[in-house]
Amino acid sequence: MAAGGDHGSPDSYRSPLASRYASPEMCFVFSDRYKFRTWRQLWLWLAEAEQTLGLPITDEQIQEMKSNLENIDFKMAAEEEKRLRHDVMAHVHTFGHCCPKAAGIIHLGATSCYVGDNTDLIILRNALDLLLPKLARVISRLADFAKERASLPTLGFTHFQPAQLTTVGKRCCLWIQDLCMDLQNLKRVRDDLRFRGVKGTTGTQASFLQLFEGDDHKVEQLDKMVTEKAGFKRAFIITGQTYTRKVDIEVLSVLASLGASVHKICTDIRLLANLKEMEEPFEKQQIGSSAMPYKRNPMRSERCCSLARHLMTLVMDPLQTASVQWFERTLDDSANRRICLAEAFLTADTILNTLQNISEGLVVYPKVIERRIRQELPFMATENIIMAMVKAGGSRQDCHEKIRVLSQQAASVVKQEGGDNDLIERIQVDAYFSPIHSQLDHLLDPSSFTGRASQQVQRFLEEEVYPLLKPYESVMKVKAELCL
């Protein structure tokens, strides 16, 4: 049975990233139509530049190519590739079939990587351009969430054990800070992308030097003109047959890092959902379990974690691919890159769409948070109580021993009897502590235990987050809708 299948058929496997999760716009960027249309555009740009620099290419040939950029006979191309065992030459023939007058000058002087690699770089750039505003929107939604809850005390956790208090907004800023680093890295790697350009079979530009009869300047002009037509500021000066596969490492490393950030955020949300302090959106008709109707599973956060793990592992592909590119190139890269580049971007696209949807509907339960604080705060307040007693004339050592005994009794009630923490009640009825009984409410005010959390939130948002989001103001209103 021949390899390949009808990918629109229910009898043929289709990647869930495309069929179930990723956005239509990201799927289109990695589609065959987008790819092969870009090949034709690159052939047109090459012909236009070659004509401008004096090669015998007519206006009629150029116009014929322009008129057929979208006229792609995919069936013919597939048949040609089956016959020739070469995808680029299959599309040269297919393009030439609908451009008979231009057929002889299509791909003039070029090698397969002229269309293959340059198209990949265009796709990487455009895919990054799709991700950047999506990530900015996630940051914006979380920034709104953090600002609104900047002063809401909550129990902090280290080692997932109760620690000092923080605020809900401050905790959210930990998430935002990681995503801001990801946004900066995505922008950097996007701006650092260079075009492969017009380089020939081993990167020496020998074929173009021959076409222009040894004119170095025209060869350099050709490279520059096509690079500018493709919208790049610069091209690699040095290439082998391909652009260095280190570029793929750079791009997928940034995406993998984004995956790590999203995994951490969504894990926190899942843990908070278990504590009943916070939940992701839950639709009115949504079913959490087929057997347990009360369940409210954090399905979206779980999906993000599941896909983020996949995204983090994909960076190993370009690392290994770059390491086995012998001399000017081997074909070890080809099949692998067809999979890992598309999957990385479709996965990143999915987790950003999902995280935006989550961040637009996060639900906080202040009463649950308050109750958990009441359970733990008495123990945390013991040092403040000791200091207040010393100020009232008591002995630190005597007070410490009193607190120690009462704390152990209260802990026994919590752990052995399943009761509430009654340390404060014990202190309130103990005559030894009568000098500070009137101060206990103040000493137990949760806001006095959150330090500068709310001020940190305000400063972080104003100095770091809002300036970073400013270039994306025009796209901030787009909502994230999930079908599944």
Rank of each mutant, 00 (worst) to 15 (best):
A2M: 12
A3C: 13
G5S: 12
D11H: 11
R20S: 10
Y21A: 10
Y21F: 09
A22V: 11
V29E: 15
S31K: 05
D32I: 02
R33W: 09
F36R: 07
R40K: 14
W43Y: 08
L44T: 00
L46E: 08
E50G: 05
E50I: 03
T52W: 03
G54R: 05
P56C: 00
I57E: 01
T58Y: 12
Q63D: 15
E64W: 06
M65V: 13
D73S: 01
D73T: 15
E81N: 08
E81R: 08
H86G: 09
H86F: 02
M89I: 02
A90E: 03
H97R: 07
H97K: 03
I106E: 03
I106S: 03
H107W: 01
G116C: 07
N118V: 05
D120G: 07
I122S: 07
L128R: 07
L135R: 10
I139F: 11
A143N: 02
D144F: 13
T154K: 03
F157L: 07
L165Q: 15
V168A: 10
K170G: 01
W175H: 00
I176A: 08
Q177W: 08
V189W: 05
R196T: 05
T202I: 09
G203V: 07
T204I: 06
T204E: 01
D215T: 15
V219C: 07
E220Y: 15
K224P: 06
K224F: 07
K229L: 05
A230F: 14
G231Y: 11
G231L: 10
F232A: 01
K233S: 05
I237N: 14
G240I: 14
Y243F: 14
E250Q: 05
S253V: 03
S257G: 05
S261N: 03
V262A: 08
C266R: 09
L272H: 03
L272W: 09
A273L: 09
K276E: 13
E277N: 03
E279K: 15
E280S: 14
E280H: 08
E283R: 05
I287G: 08
G288R: 10
K295G: 15
N297L: 14
P298V: 06
R303N: 15
L307W: 05
H310F: 05
H310A: 13
T313K: 14
L314C: 01
M316H: 04
S323H: 08
V324K: 02
Q325Y: 06
R329C: 14
T330M: 02
D333F: 09
R337T: 00
A342T: 09
A344P: 02
L352P: 08
L355S: 15
N357A: 14
V363L: 15
V368D: 08
V368M: 05
V368T: 11
E370S: 08
R372T: 15
Q375H: 02
L377R: 07
F379D: 11
F379V: 10
T382Y: 15
M387G: 13
A388I: 12
A388V: 08
M389T: 00
M389I: 15
K391D: 10
Q397L: 13
D398N: 10
D398A: 13
C399I: 09
H400N: 09
H400A: 10
E401K: 13
K402P: 10
I403F: 15
R404I: 06
V405R: 02
L406F: 05
S407T: 11
S412E: 07
V414S: 11
K415L: 10
Q416C: 07
E417K: 10
G418F: 01
G418Q: 15
G418W: 02
N421V: 11
L423Q: 15
I427N: 01
Q428F: 10
D430G: 04
Y432Q: 00
Y432A: 07
S434Y: 04
S434F: 12
P435D: 13
I436C: 11
H437E: 06
L443D: 00
D445C: 03
F449W: 09
G451C: 13
R452V: 06
A453T: 08
R459T: 09
E463K: 15
E464R: 06
P467S: 10
L468M: 15
K470T: 04
P471K: 01
K479I: 15
L484F: 14
L484R: 13
